[in-house]
């Protein structure tokens, strides 16, 4: 049984003048421990799909099953991260990570080691007591990542978490992300419009067409780990990138 099973999922938003077809249909599965990227142009509904998987938005048609059970309400076993992070300004980095636990009724004192470990993995140990606004954009996203991971979620949903960062910072955080995933092997769904990012990080890439977004195809990425600079310079890597680019080219997107 797949971890996440998405069947003919469609999302429409009803409006006064009839309604907007936001996404779908899409059918694919995610196995436990996979890193799956949803790649598509802006406005194709890939974030909408992520929200439906989190149970934050009900699909208009089709089914989403997690471990064989349909998603009918907001899932609380996920870790979510958005382009605009969810760090609150009145708490330090550490206290922001603890917020995830406190909201779940978990005493953060019992998770001190786990928080320290996460902070160390992303290189924020020395910034634990700083306020979010004292950190750079890249450091904020690292902190938000710890916040999304601290409760050991079943699935991690990343909605363009690196979208607002500069190219170099993005590159570094991708490496961090990969290291963390290789260590934990948590199931990750990443929404991105960077084809390279998707190929570098994913076990499989779902190609979403321009508006209204449908699932065009799924590409399995068979490259060695860790995918460092050597791998990124390989012919196989370039092959995957151009294979996916060709699809968007066909839609007149690039």
């Amino acid at each position: 049984m797949p971890h996440i099973d998405i069947r003919n999922v469609v999302k429409r938003f009803e409006t006064a003048d009839g309604g907007v077809h936001a996404f779908g249909p899409a059918t694919f599965t995610v196995e436990r421990g996979e890193f799956v990227s949803l790649v598509g142009p802006s406005g194709c509904g890939k974030s909408t799909l992520l929200l439906m998987i989190a149970g934050l938005l009900p699909p208009s048609a089709g089914e989403i099953d997690v471990d064989g059970r349909p998603v009918l309400a907001t899932r609380t076993d996920v870790g979510i991260m958005f382009q605009d992070n969810t760090l609150v300004p009145w708490r330090s980095v550490r206290r922001n990570i603890e917020l995830q636990l406190e909201l779940r009724g978990i005493n953060p004192k019992t998770c001190r080691e786990r928080i320290d470990g996460l902070l160390e993995t992303v290189g924020l140990t020395d910034f634990a007591n700083r306020a979010p606004f004292e950190l750079s954009g890249g450091m904020q996203q690292r902190a938000a990542f710890c916040q999304a991971m601290v409760h050991d979620p079943d699935t991690v949903l990343l909605d363009e978490p690196l979208g607002k960062l500069d190219a170099m910072t993005r590159e570094r955080i991708r490496a961090d992300l990969q290291r963390l995933w290789l260590k934990t092997r948590t199931t990750v769904l990443l929404v991105t419009h960077s084809i390279e990012e998707a190929v570098q990080l994913s076990t499989k890439v779902c190609i979403i067409t321009p508006r209204p977004g449908r699932l065009d195809s799924v590409v399995d990425i068979d490259l060695p780990w860790p995918r460092d600079l050597t791998v990124k310079r390989s012919a196989a890597f370039a092959g995957y990138v151009s294979q996916i680019s060709d699809v968007f080219h066909r839609y007149g997107e690039i």
Binding site: L56, T74, R75, I80, N85, L103, R104
Partner: peptide
Amino acid sequence: SEELTRFTRATGAGTWRA
């Protein structure tokens, strides 16, 4: 913000705690 609303909902926190 929409992000914080969703984040809070996904923790399953009750109305008062949230």
